[in-house]
Design a protein around this nucleic acid. Structure first.
Lengths: 364, 364
DNA sequence: AAGTTTCGTTAATACGTATTAGGTTCTTGA
DNA sequence: TCAAGAACCTAATACGTATTAACGAAACTT
């Protein structure tokens, strides 16, 4: 509380080279730092500056090679034009590269279009426990807002963000209320696939789903079951999970039961589909002829070696991954702008007619 | 200049919820903000704190749910654990997805392993001119250091970074002195391919290169020419550029000249290779039998429709893209740590024996 | 017991920009 | 000529953390 403020020693800037700051420009132009800020930001707040002053400042800025410091900008303005993308996996796994990549592309595209940069937050690489997640998730605040993406979701740290009013958007549907997301309308798209099979004349089909309760899987099952019911397919025994044992044995059993079409779902690894097509090939079945196949989701690009053994594109629907990424960015920006209410978007999936659905073989 | 400093109104924090700051913890624990900082950062500067105080502070921090602000941290400490990745393209083009992606994966992996987050800077989306680039490049300073990646390189803004001592690393070899990079040793790998052809008995071969003077192409040409000379291949007429007209006509001409093997190079789009293989197929030539093919670089995954029409993997070499990404991150971290001298790494490419090189057909 | 260390903590300031409430000076109108 | 307004600009402070010089108190020397 001393009145005699001791003049600060103010050590000189690191010898020679140094990034010029606004205060340097101010000194050169004979104005205050505040004026420099006003000039450089393009007078926003109704403050009017004399054209002459403006010129002097701009000149000085140019001469000194001024470059605004993004960090300081963010600190002062609570905005830095950066969006976060947090994937709940240690890193981008190569195996699922094709499944994640389109979303990343979409996010990147839209972010660029909106003039935002992207921070890729690498998930909890260290501790597997929640403390690691918490530490990782909190870094997210370096951005103006964040996108979350992936199956595993650490609840607590996220709730924290939500309570603090930090803007974020999930990619993929979430159950939790009050959370914004952009997902795919798996229910409708799956129902449509069931209807398509029914329209071709199938009556007894099977849906082989992942043994996993992610919302994406749950929704697909709901769609298939409802669609089957509405379209007049048999629903008894319709759904089976992948934990039920050998695919070849299953396929044989189904054939015995008079099943004429099989639906499966796309997942990270594409294992379900590749397993099924391989089994069909081994059983020597003609695909649209003796058994129809449908896939709920975009086919993961097959690894270089694996020949699909099918006549063409697989029937089913396409998940608009890229568009999901784009929509998520737009939604996030809305939230950042101050859009209060959380919002949910479900994007429609595009039906893929493909070559693997045909009329069932005439009853023997 | 008034002596009576008016007490600042200090508007209360946005009602209710708010991120607790160190000063809040300080109040709760009955210590100063400085003490809180010392405790939370894990006493580094030799300052020792009473265990009791330390506990009180940690307790308060826990209770309040303190989360350090990364931006403020960066401003104060000039470090924030974030690395930039700047690609010189408007966005990640889907077409070249496969060509860029492995690098991104490598960067991501290593960044995660090193506990660094990644900022994806989206290139100049607006102005095509250099001012746009400059504005885009400067944002890069929000990170502790940056990786640059891509063909088009805006010289000026980069030089600026260099002068300011901002740490950065190129992915891909650069000519400019004083710049750190991690590239692939195209010269050696290309020479090795030439040698391999010679070893199989070829004498007259052609190298079809891109009509483009990126370092990657230049290096490959040098490697091929030197390798050919050293291995006893004919060097006259060895190199041709892709701007020389129709591939089918070329191929026919080469056959007439007694050429028994063709080398081409991988590029973003994979156009050179696909054009060549298609021409070979159209000419009805057996691949290792009547003409050998080699590719300098990793084959871009063929688009879903295009059957390669070759018996198997194409011969040539693999560019260790992923490892380049990883190495670049490590090098960048070295630079950030204060490693003074710029450093250059050239990574070896892995030979791919493949199925498209064989002995030449016996002279007719 | 006075002097010297050591310990534990804090005050003060840096970091670079944004923002806002005034303060001067200059016009203008009556 | 005086008040009112307009036009320009600046002082002051916020933003949240890191760092360092320094200070009071307690513990040791001699």
């Amino acid at each position: 509380m001393s009145d005699t403020v001791p003049p600060s020693p103010k050590p000189p800037r690191a010898a020679g080279r140094a990034k010029p700051r606004q205060s340097d420009i101010a000194r050169a132009a004979g104005v205050s730092q505040a004026t420099v800020s006003l000039v450089l930001r393009g007078a926003a707040t109704g403050v009017v500056l004399a054209p002459e002053t403006r010129r002097r400042v701009l000149r000085a800025a140019e001469d000194l090679g001024y470059v605004p410091d993004p960090v300081a900008t963010r600190l002062a303005a609570a905005r830095n034009g950066m969006l976060g993308l947090y994937t709940f996996s240690t890193t981008f796994p190569t195996d699922v590269a094709h499944s994640y990549y389109p979303v990343l592309v979409g996010v990147e595209e839209e972010a660029a279009a909106q003039g935002q940069d992207l921070i890729l937050f690498t998930g909890a690489s260290r501790a597997a426990d929640d403390s690691g997640d918490a530490a990782a998730v909190r870094r997210v605040r370096a951005a103006d807002g964040c996108l979350f993406f992936g199956r595993h979701v650490p609840e607590d740290p996220i709730r924290r963000l939500s309570e603090d009013g930090f803007p974020f958007v999930y990619i993929g549907r979430r159950e939790e209320p009050g959370i914004s997301y952009v997902g795919a309308d798996y229910v409708s798209a799956s129902a449509e696939v069931a209807a398509r099979l029914a329209a071709q004349g199938h009556r007894r089909v099977r849906y082989l789903r992942e043994n996993d309760d992610a919302p994406a899987s749950t929704d697909r099952e709901r769609g298939v079951v409802e669609g089957a019911r509405d379209a007049g397919l048999e629903t008894a025994g319709l759904v089976e999970r992948t934990d039920g044992g050998d695919v070849d044995a299953r396929l044989a059993r189904w054939r015995g039961e008079g099943v004429t079409a099989v639906i499966t779902e796309e997942t990270d690894t594409g294992a379900a589909l590749s397993g099924l097509t391989a089994a069909v090939a081994r059983a020597g079945l003609a695909c649209p002829g003796e058994v129809s196949l449908a896939l709920l989701g975009t086919a993961t690009a097959a690894p270089a070696g694996a020949a699909p053994a099918l006549g063409g594109e697989i029937s089913g629907f396409d998940v608009p991954m890229r568009e999901m990424g784009r929509a998520a960015v737009r939604l996030l920006l809305d939230l950042i702008e101050g859009e209060a209410a959380p919002r949910r978007h479900l994007l429609a999936c595009e039906p893929v007619s493909g070559a693997t659905i045909g009329p069932p073989a005439p009853a023997n």
